[in-house]
Amino acid sequence: MHKENQIKGFTGASKYVLDEELARIVNISMALEMPLLLKGEPGTGKTMLAHAIAEAFGMKLIVLNVKSSMKLIDALYQYDTLTRLNDSRFGDSKRDVSNIEEYIRMGKIGQAFVSDARVVLLIDEIDKADTDFQDDMLDVLDQMEFDIIEIDKTIKAKHRPVIIITSNAKKDLSDPFLGRCNFHHIAFPEPDMMRRIVHVHFPEIDKELLDSTVKTFYRLREIRGIEKKPATRELINWIRALKADPDFRVKDLIKGEVPFLGVLFKKSPDYVVAQNAVARFRV
């Protein structure tokens, strides 16, 4: 699998169904060594793509989950002053207290830079952080180096990591940021695509169940007034729940009954809306 991928470029992974368009974009981004920015509804597989690339190329995956309070330096490195203070007081560790470098811990971006092999760096939900963070981070990723002020040392990337950035927001990121990334928007999969995705997760699923679940799923997505529409993840969990229930018959779905609605709708107002709508399915 790994070898084959290296020759032909990225073609998918064992649990990830890839559409051709996205495959081309991934390959171009990797060849140009540019970060790839992915946008799209939750549940369209933005995060999974990074996992799939890592699996397909046998690379290590480093995930940086962006938080709103995060500063760039947290992603780069951390100077562990407290441990040093403690060591200097008690002196019972093997670390050399006068050597600050021993108290520098690499953050996620730092780890990706010092890694001996090329890694996949996933920067998840970049839109959570403020604009300054985003721009500063892109500088670091552009230069492929950063300074550790405490020990006056520059960390250079040994190998340019494959960088995947995801964003949920519909709002645009800043222009300089966009200028340095390739961009793709993943649309929600169509029923045919969804069938293939489900098939990858449940290879032995029978056709009747597959068709009726997917059909019901898209019908449920169309209910008006839902705040968080069920996504791929919910569908897969739902099918898992249906398969686990010994009393479940596929005919129920066709009749318009939808068991385990709670797996699909996780917000209570949504759940109520969906319940009412489902009641109307049974005509």
Partner: peptide, 29 residues
């Protein structure tokens, strides 16, 4: 950057060009 992608032989068909150029040039859906 698109020219670079073209010269590196990454784009071999109109389909490739459509997706490639879009990913590189267009930054918002």
């Amino acid at each position: 950057r698109l020219q670079k992608a073209l010269s590196m032989g990454l784009i071999n068909s109109l389909d490739d060009f459509y997706t490639g150029a879009r990913a590189i040039l267009v930054k918002s859906e």
